[in-house]
């Protein structure tokens, strides 16, 4: 049984009068510990799929089993709990709370998870991404790369099975982007399933599997023989 089992998923949006068929019968399995890049042009449905895999949204049709549990028809609050426990998000825009310190940002998932002690796990998570000494800085006092590391620390703090990254290097310069990808390789080496949406061939090049989307469905799905393990991004 795969960690992520997506079965014949359809997603239809209604933008006023217009009906948008964002996904048209996608079926995809991702094994635990895999490292997958999802590519494709804008509007191909890759972001919609990421939202579904990330339990931010539910499909119009079809089913989604996450770690054996059908999460395709859960209530918003149940989905929130699933996201909190199982999934870490890394965004292109970093999406940190501007007024909170790095540590407070990382504590956030612990707070919503009802953890009694939030400080130490958050601190450990920051140390894991190499930012133990920046814990009390606010996002605007950090560089772009550091901000993205804080976001990764936040994604990791609840020990999720899966980290979903949406263009994680899109707002970073090449060198900083590479550093982030090295960090991703390490996480994957630690057994975390990584799913990365990207346009960037260099990002995709370091993964083990590349899934290409066109017009709301999978176009190609290839094993990337040059990819991880072993930190090919390095």
């Amino acid at each position: 049984m795969a960690l992520i089992e997506v079965r014949d998923i359809h997603k239809v949006y209604h933008m006023g009068e217009v009906e948008v068929r964002a996904l048209q019968g996608v079926t995809l399995d991702i094994e635990g510990g895999d490292y997958v890049a999802i590519m494709g042009p804008s509007g191909s449905g890759k972001s919609t799929l990421m939202n579904l895999i990330g339990c931010l949204d539910t499909p119009t049709e079809g089913s989604y089993l996450l770690d054996g549990e059908d999460v395709s028809h859960l209530s918003p609050d149940r989905l929130a709990a699933v996201r909190n426990r199982q999934i870490g998000f890394v965004f292109q825009q970093f999406n940190l709370l501007p007024r909170a310190s790095a540590l407070q940002n990382v504590e956030l998932p612990l707070v919503y998870g009802g953890a009694g002690n939030t400080r130490e796990p958050a601190m450990r998570s920051l140390e894991r991404v190499g930012l133990g000494d920046r814990a009390h800085h606010r996002p605007r006092e950090l560089s772009g790369g550091e901000q993205q590391r804080v976001a990764i620390a936040r994604a990791l703090v609840n020990n999720p099975n899966i980290v979903l990254a949406d263009e994680p290097t899109g707002n970073l310069d090449t060198r900083t982007g590479e550093e982030i990808l090295v960090l991703f390789d390490e996480l994957n080496a630690d057994g975390i399933t990584m799913v990365v949406v990207t346009h960037d061939a260099r990002v995709a090049g370091g993964t083990r599997r590349i899934v290409r989307f066109v017009d709301g469905n999978i176009d190609t799905d290839q094993i990337n023989h040059q990819g991880a393990p072993g930190g090919n991004h390095a």
């Binding site: 931010l56 609050d77 996201r83 909190n84 709370l97 956030l108 919503y112 998870g113």
Partner: peptide, 14 residues
């Protein structure tokens, strides 16, 4: 946006 971030990391409606 802040609400979105909070929800993404597991904030429930309540």
């Amino acid at each position: 946006r802040e609400i979105g971030i909070r929800k993404a990391v597991g904030a429930r409606r309540r």
